[in-house]
Simulated assay, not measured.
Amino acid sequence: MSNTTKIVNFYEKLKPADVSRLGEIYEEDAFFKDPFNELKSLSNIEKIFEEMFNELENPYFVFIDKISHNHQVFLTWDFVFTKNRRNFKIHGSSHLKLSESGKIMYHRDYWDVGEELLLKLPVIKSIYGALRNKLAVDS
């Protein structure tokens, strides 16, 4: 099984009890960055996933594209969850750099907070929409 397949399989089956097993796919001193966090160390990465399971209902990942070359992996995914009885789906991507042992040493997530999250909140949606219309190029 390739390292990419192992990582994707781990994430596709991720449950709260699996957070303590993140060391199977991450190096101890791994770097992680997303639109809200920038941190280093396996223990801090575990905290992010613990919080995810504490704050969200039934969160899971659906992987769409997988590209790997040498020790780098690029994944596109949908992150699906429920919060306050509302269903959400965030589309994003991850750039992973793997160590010689095949574990993640660098994990950077890319997704548009405005489009994927803020625009789903009514008040912010109207403000953001007005700003977006004002800045858009006429065609």
Rank of each mutant, 00 (worst) to 15 (best):
S2W: 00
T5D: 13
K6S: 11
F10Y: 13
E12K: 15
K13D: 11
K15R: 14
G23V: 02
E24Q: 14
I25C: 04
Y26H: 12
Y26N: 02
E28H: 06
E28K: 14
D29F: 05
A30D: 02
A30Q: 05
P35S: 09
P35N: 07
K40I: 11
K40W: 00
S41H: 08
I45R: 04
E46H: 01
E46G: 03
F49V: 06
F49M: 03
E51K: 15
M52Q: 13
M52A: 10
N54W: 01
P59M: 09
Y60Q: 13
V62T: 12
D65G: 01
K66N: 13
I67W: 10
N70L: 12
Q72E: 15
L75R: 02
L75N: 04
L75Y: 01
T76H: 02
F79M: 12
N84E: 13
R85H: 14
R85M: 09
R85K: 15
N87W: 00
F88H: 14
F88R: 05
G92C: 05
H95C: 03
K97E: 13
K97A: 09
L98Y: 05
S101T: 15
G102D: 08
G102F: 08
K103D: 07
H107E: 05
R108S: 01
D109H: 05
W111G: 07
W111P: 07
D112H: 03
V113K: 06
E116S: 06
L117Q: 04
L119A: 03
L121Y: 12
P122A: 03
P122F: 07
P122N: 06
I124L: 15
K125Y: 09
K125C: 00
S126E: 15
I127F: 14
G129C: 01
R132T: 10
L135H: 12
